[in-house]
Amino acid sequence: MPKFFEFFSGGGMARLGLGGEWKCQFANDICAKKVSTYIENFGDDEILKEDIYKLNASNLPGKADLIWGSFPCQDLSLAGNGAGLNGERSGTFKKLMSIIKDLKVEKRQPNLIVLENVVGAITSHGGKDFEAIIEALSSLGYYTGCVVVDGASFVPQSRPRLFVIATKTPKTRFFTLISKEPNPEWHPSNLIKAHSALPEKLQKKWVWWSMPTPPNRDKNLVDIVEENPTDVKELGTGEVKKLISMMSETNLEKLNQAKRENGLVVGGLYKRVRKQKNGEKLQRAEVRFDGTAGCLRTPTGGSSRQTLVLVENGEVKARLLSRREAARLMGVPDNYKLPSKYNDAYHVFGDGLVVPAVSWIEKHLLKPIQEAS
């Protein structure tokens, strides 16, 4: 059974996605609420609560076949501060690379590395951060390629994420897993552009990973809604009217269309500050009724919490997304033990991975690469 180390493990969603055919040897996160959730679900044998800056190769037991690292995205996200890989949080990438470098010296270097982050990592600092990521992996002897996977292919949540997949396995052994040209399904135009800007020496170590198209999603937003959630309450009539008053004409028309439909219609709503034609900035309530929720975030402010709008027989109700609904939007099974505090759950899932997206990558890339090594 192949083994893996998991850095920035959060609530263990990479572990869930990799499944029972991979054995976790070590997991690490600095956040107490995430570590406690991890322990609730997987036990405390592998997890270590510690700042990665205080870790080194000696903390890692034996040799892993895979290192998974979903390093913090705050400095790379469009919603972040733009500090890039030199930021305090996203700069943890450099520390992770130094640990892998030490493992190489000790002849414990993993065959596979997967790094996950927001798609903003592709264009951060004019592509310099992306180049630095590819350069770091190439210098350690890895072939590297990337795919952008939107969680919406698997769950009713819009969540595009960049997955950097690197391997030491000789290319001749996994040639069936790569294509000569990029595939728009997994390689959007900004990724193709970023690749073309890489120095020639890095392009020679690049591969275009190939995966099949996922089957049509079998659940929409209405299918993950709890009937009687205990951790959130419906908004009062006045609060609902206030939300509606914050909608633009376009969003009001979406709401009116939902009112005209039969049965329960569920939409996801976020509050956004938008600049008007006259230059004034207004907070707007923006809703979508396409069966897909907006991207989950951590609860850093009131507007970061997603509101569900429930329309049935012309009546409009609204409430915050529940903890279990947030988990379901990440593809987490219902037997997963949730944090008892609402905000803690939002932290765990807002920073998390879409479990079936990880499983798709594992099935069609990681497992075949490992078997070919």
Rank of each mutant, 00 (worst) to 15 (best):
L308A: 04
V316T: 11
R328T: 11
N256K: 11
L329H: 02
K317D: 15
H195E: 07
N313Q: 10
G331H: 04
D231L: 10
S304N: 10
N228M: 12
V287H: 02
L321S: 01
S196E: 14
N228R: 10
V266W: 03
R328M: 09
N278R: 12
D223W: 09
E239V: 05
P229Q: 15
A285H: 02
K193T: 04
T213R: 11
L282V: 05
N251A: 07
K233G: 11
A318M: 08
H195A: 01
G236K: 13
T292M: 07
E312H: 10
L202Y: 10
T292L: 08
N220V: 15
L235K: 15
D290F: 11
V240P: 01
Q306K: 00
T237S: 15
K241Y: 03
N220Q: 14
Q257I: 14
P212C: 05
R272F: 10
R319A: 08
H195Y: 15
K281G: 02
R272N: 07
N220D: 13
L321W: 02
W208C: 01
W206Y: 08
P299Q: 06
E312T: 08
G268K: 03
K277V: 02
G268S: 15
L202N: 03
E226D: 15
N228H: 13
M211A: 03
W206L: 02
P214E: 08
L202S: 00
G291F: 09
N313F: 01
E234G: 08
K275S: 05
M246A: 07
R305M: 08
K204R: 11
I224K: 00
L243F: 11
C295V: 04
K317M: 09
V316Y: 15
K201C: 09
T307F: 07
T237W: 11
R217P: 03
V240Q: 04
V316W: 13
K233T: 08
N216A: 10
S304C: 07
P333A: 06
G268Y: 01
S245F: 13
S248M: 07
Y270C: 00
A327S: 11
E312F: 08
N251C: 09
E315H: 09
G301S: 12
G301D: 11
A258E: 04
N220P: 01
V311Q: 01
N228F: 14
G331A: 12
V316L: 14
K205S: 06
L296A: 04
R284P: 00
V287S: 02
R297L: 12
L198C: 07
L321G: 00
A327D: 09
V309F: 12
G279T: 08
L269M: 14
R324Q: 14
L221S: 10
L308Q: 12
L198K: 05
S245L: 07
K317I: 06
M330Q: 14
T298P: 05
E315K: 12
P229S: 14
R284C: 09
G263I: 01
A194E: 04
L221R: 11
E315Y: 08
G302S: 06
R328Y: 06
P333N: 08
E249F: 09
R324H: 05
R305S: 01
L269H: 01
S196P: 02
R274T: 07
E226W: 04
Q203P: 06
K281L: 09
P212F: 03
W206R: 04
L255G: 10
L269S: 01
K259I: 12
R260K: 14
K193S: 14
